[in-house]
């Protein structure tokens, strides 16, 4: 935007002055666009939370939250995701200091923690289904699988995305475009942690108490 009145030499100057935030540059606009997407994701999860809260008492004679949920495994996955949110932040810090190797290691660690979280979630779901608590059992379970499953799907997409960013970092290094990509994936990851906090509180903690 800042460079549309300039000839080619000035364009190069514009790139070297990228750190100056006087004009909104393209990468900042893209990060903001991603933020808008996150706000629409807030609405998706909001409607699923509303459906779950409304339907959680409708167990159709089947098992309710207190009988189904094993809090121990859920607590472990909560701390896994919390730690991954922290390592993701450390990755951004390493990037800002220009440390490519540290950035990639922190991102990889974040992805491993996220994969462990998904592994635990799949284990939990298979366990529930084996107990006969499937998505079709009751309105409560339909709402439960929709809400928790949508979050898990987001984490899976985040994992694929993060691996792609790590691979790109390996070949391209820390460029302005790569910085924006790491910035957006870290926003996405922190956002998923926030959503999980509310899943953990509303679905699991309130379900068993």
């Amino acid at each position: 935007m800042a460079s549309n009145h300039s000839a080619e030499p000035a364009l190069h100057a514009g790139i070297s002055q990228e750190e100056h935030h006087d004009h909104p540059n393209l990468e900042e606009m893209r990060t903001f666009g991603f933020w808008i997407y996150l706000m629409t994701d807030v609405l998706i999860f909001g409607t699923f939370f509303a459906a779950y809260i409304v339907l959680r008492g409708n167990t159709n004679g089947g098992p309710g939250p207190a009988e189904l949920f094993e809090l121990n495994g859920i607590i472990v996955s909560t701390f896994l995701l919390l730690a991954s949110s922290y390592t993701c932040g450390l990755a951004v810090l390493a990037m800002n200091k220009g440390k490519k190797q540290a950035l990639m290691v922190w991102l990889a660690l974040t992805a491993i923690l996220g994969a462990a979280f998904i592994g635990l979630e799949i284990t939990e779901f298979t366990h529930l289904v084996q107990e006969g608590a499937t998505m079709g059992t009751s309105a409560f379970l339909s709402a439960f699988y929709t809400l928790v499953g949508t979050h898990g799907l987001h984490v899976c997409i985040g994992l694929i995305w993060m691996v792609a960013v790590i691979l790109q970092l390996a070949s391209k290094g820390i460029t302005p475009v790569m910085k924006r990509k790491v910035q957006t994936i870290s926003l996405f990851w922190h956002f998923l942690d926030v959503v999980w906090i509310f899943v953990f509180t509303v679905v699991y903690l309130m379900g068993v108490s």
Binding site: M39, T40, V42, L43, G46, T47, F49, A50, I53
Partner: peptide
């Protein structure tokens, strides 16, 4: 803006 809509949807449904 997102949080206001969220509150309207969740609290309104409840």
């Amino acid at each position: 803006f997102g949080l206001v809509i969220l509150l309207v949807v969740v609290a309104g449904s409840m």
